Amino acid sequence: MYKHEFTLEALRLVLLEDAGPDQSVDLDRDILDVEFAELGYAPSALAETVGRIEREYGVVLDEDLCSDHPTPRGLIAAVNAQLELSVPA
């Protein structure tokens, strides 16, 4: 069964498990509007993150998702938009 809401906490978990930030990065602070690059995440690490989100949430995301939405707020909104589209009427 797929999940129907993607949250900041879910993103933090995926980032920590899949992409492992620089030890100096504090993901527990307010990161919603901080760019992924500033958080220490390379494009290749974010590609892994997007792939995991697709698998766990049952959505197909644009390959340019992280460049189009370079902050957690943008990524979360884009994932939730896709989740809304995938819910049966």
Rank of each mutant, 00 (worst) to 15 (best):
G58F: 03
E5V: 14
E38C: 08
E38K: 15
A42N: 07
E84F: 05
Q23C: 10
L13V: 10
L65Q: 01
A10P: 00
S86F: 11
D68R: 13
Y57P: 01
A42L: 07
S24M: 06
E48Y: 00
V87D: 09
R29W: 04
A19D: 11
D28N: 15
I31H: 01
T49I: 11
M1D: 12
F6V: 07
E9M: 12
G74A: 08
D68L: 11
P21V: 11
Y2M: 12
D18C: 13
A77K: 14
A42G: 04
V60R: 13
R55S: 06
L61R: 03
E56I: 07
E5W: 05
T71V: 06
L13W: 05
A47H: 04
V60S: 13
G40T: 12
A37G: 13
R73C: 02
L27T: 10
N80S: 10
R55A: 06
L13C: 06
A45I: 06
S67R: 08
F36W: 06
E48F: 01
E5G: 09
D68Y: 04
L11E: 04
P70C: 05
R52E: 03
V25R: 12
V60P: 01
A78V: 08
E35Q: 14
E63V: 09
Y57M: 05
G51K: 02
